[in-house]
Simulated scan of single mutants.
Amino acid sequence: MTTALTPSTLTDLDALAYAGPAALVITITPHLATELLKRNTRNRNLRPRAVSDYARDMTAGSWVINGEAIKLATNGDVLDGQHRLHAITKAQRSIDMFVVIGLAPETQETMDSGRKRSTGDVLSLRAEDNATTLAAITRRVWAWQQGDRRFKGRDTPTTAECVAVLTAHPELRRSAEIATRTRNAFPHIPQSVLGTAHFLFNAIDPDECAWFFQRLADGANLPVGHPILALRARVTSERLDAVRMAEDRFMAYLIRTWNAVRDGRELARLTHKSGSDIPDPK
């Protein structure tokens, strides 16, 4: 069981640091974070998106002690952890964190040399099927829920936010399975977009959604002029022409096709003007 030291000041930390390297758990208040950042004199460029990501997790109560530490040199300089400290000041939350003190300044050169664990890695550790695809879909569903229908917003979801989406919508696992199966049969639309569209369409009409994705995969028994045939022809043509299509364009095609099917309309040719709004599925 860890014990948080509250309150803790720079003077307390400096006194302990002289004894050499040590690790402890400290409740870092917004005030202490601000004071520590005054000693952040030699570090990488700040990434505002990372600060926003961390701050959202802190505000949501999703931040947990995971062994990653704020690292301070023997002279008190911040060697690692500036993004977490900025996030504490942004969120205005007091957060319990490991702090390693008393490190030689030159050790900073060896920090953060590993690869960050992705959301897909986390879902794989949880033994989720189709973990990479499932992670990609949850990120795009999160974006859609934030009003970002082009999946190009400034903010991207944290792993905790993706897990929260999956917890709220366990049916996303089925969407990932259908996306993988459809992609294997018709490899011209990204799985991430297929899964996101399946999630949205399934919430409207599960039976018609199941039929829609079966016919998207195999194109079987569809009459001339059917919207799904227009979709299959359009994306196949653009992919064969080596056109690099953005995800929002795929999404617009899928929604326009779905809406035409729902309306019972024929669709000889599928179009979507670049930069135009992504329609609502209905």
Rank of each mutant, 00 (worst) to 15 (best):
residue 23 A to M: 12
residue 186 F to Y: 11
residue 167 T to W: 03
residue 180 T to C: 14
residue 279 P to E: 05
residue 86 H to S: 09
residue 122 V to K: 08
residue 53 D to S: 14
residue 186 F to V: 10
residue 253 Y to M: 04
residue 49 R to P: 06
residue 151 F to V: 05
residue 258 W to R: 00
residue 165 V to Y: 00
residue 269 R to W: 05
residue 233 A to I: 02
residue 184 N to E: 12
residue 14 D to E: 15
residue 112 D to M: 00
residue 118 S to W: 00
residue 51 V to Y: 01
residue 208 E to N: 10
residue 80 D to H: 09
residue 223 P to H: 15
residue 132 T to V: 12
residue 98 F to G: 01
residue 149 R to V: 06
residue 89 T to F: 00
residue 5 L to V: 03
residue 38 K to W: 02
residue 96 D to R: 07
residue 280 D to Y: 11
residue 201 F to P: 02
residue 68 E to H: 12
residue 143 A to C: 08
residue 30 P to N: 01
residue 148 D to E: 08
residue 9 T to K: 06
residue 195 G to Q: 03
residue 122 V to H: 09
residue 168 A to E: 15
residue 167 T to Y: 07
residue 223 P to R: 10
residue 106 E to H: 11
residue 181 R to P: 07
residue 248 D to S: 12
residue 78 V to E: 05
residue 4 A to T: 13
residue 279 P to R: 04
residue 9 T to I: 05
residue 252 A to C: 05
residue 111 M to C: 08
residue 84 R to Y: 02
residue 156 T to P: 07
residue 60 A to I: 04
residue 151 F to K: 13
residue 2 T to F: 15
residue 49 R to F: 10
residue 224 V to P: 11
residue 197 A to E: 07
residue 97 M to H: 01
residue 169 H to S: 11
residue 172 L to H: 06
residue 104 A to M: 14
residue 248 D to W: 10
residue 129 D to M: 09
residue 56 R to S: 13
residue 19 A to F: 11
residue 38 K to A: 12
residue 55 A to H: 01
residue 139 R to F: 09
residue 28 I to M: 13
residue 84 R to K: 11
residue 275 G to P: 02
residue 11 T to G: 07
residue 136 A to M: 15
residue 31 H to R: 11
residue 215 R to Y: 13
residue 36 L to P: 03
residue 264 G to Q: 04
residue 23 A to Y: 11
residue 278 I to P: 04
residue 219 G to H: 01
residue 239 R to E: 08
residue 16 L to C: 03
residue 151 F to M: 06
residue 145 Q to K: 08
residue 48 P to T: 12
residue 270 L to D: 04
residue 93 R to S: 01
residue 271 T to K: 11
residue 7 P to W: 04
residue 160 A to T: 01
residue 222 L to E: 07
residue 177 E to D: 15
residue 157 P to H: 07
residue 54 Y to H: 07
residue 77 D to S: 06
residue 174 R to P: 06
residue 266 E to A: 08
residue 267 L to R: 02
residue 236 T to G: 07
residue 212 F to L: 01
residue 70 I to D: 03
residue 253 Y to R: 00
residue 148 D to T: 05
residue 80 D to C: 13
residue 235 V to M: 02
residue 217 A to E: 09
residue 150 R to H: 08
residue 241 D to G: 06
residue 112 D to C: 05
residue 123 L to S: 11
residue 199 F to T: 04
residue 109 E to V: 13
residue 89 T to C: 03
residue 252 A to N: 01
residue 222 L to V: 06
residue 227 P to R: 00
residue 9 T to S: 12
residue 19 A to K: 13
residue 136 A to C: 14
residue 183 R to F: 15
residue 19 A to H: 13
residue 205 D to N: 14
residue 134 L to F: 13
residue 274 S to W: 13
residue 85 L to M: 09
residue 192 S to W: 01
residue 247 E to D: 15
residue 187 P to A: 02
residue 26 I to G: 04
residue 271 T to C: 03
residue 114 G to Y: 10
residue 106 E to P: 11
residue 236 T to Q: 14
residue 70 I to R: 02
residue 82 Q to W: 05
residue 10 L to A: 02
residue 115 R to V: 05
residue 268 A to H: 06
residue 10 L to N: 03
residue 79 L to Y: 06
residue 161 E to M: 07
residue 160 A to K: 00
residue 156 T to A: 04
residue 72 L to M: 05
residue 207 D to H: 02
residue 205 D to I: 10
residue 256 R to W: 09
residue 57 D to R: 00
residue 164 A to K: 12
residue 111 M to T: 10
residue 279 P to Y: 03
residue 271 T to R: 07
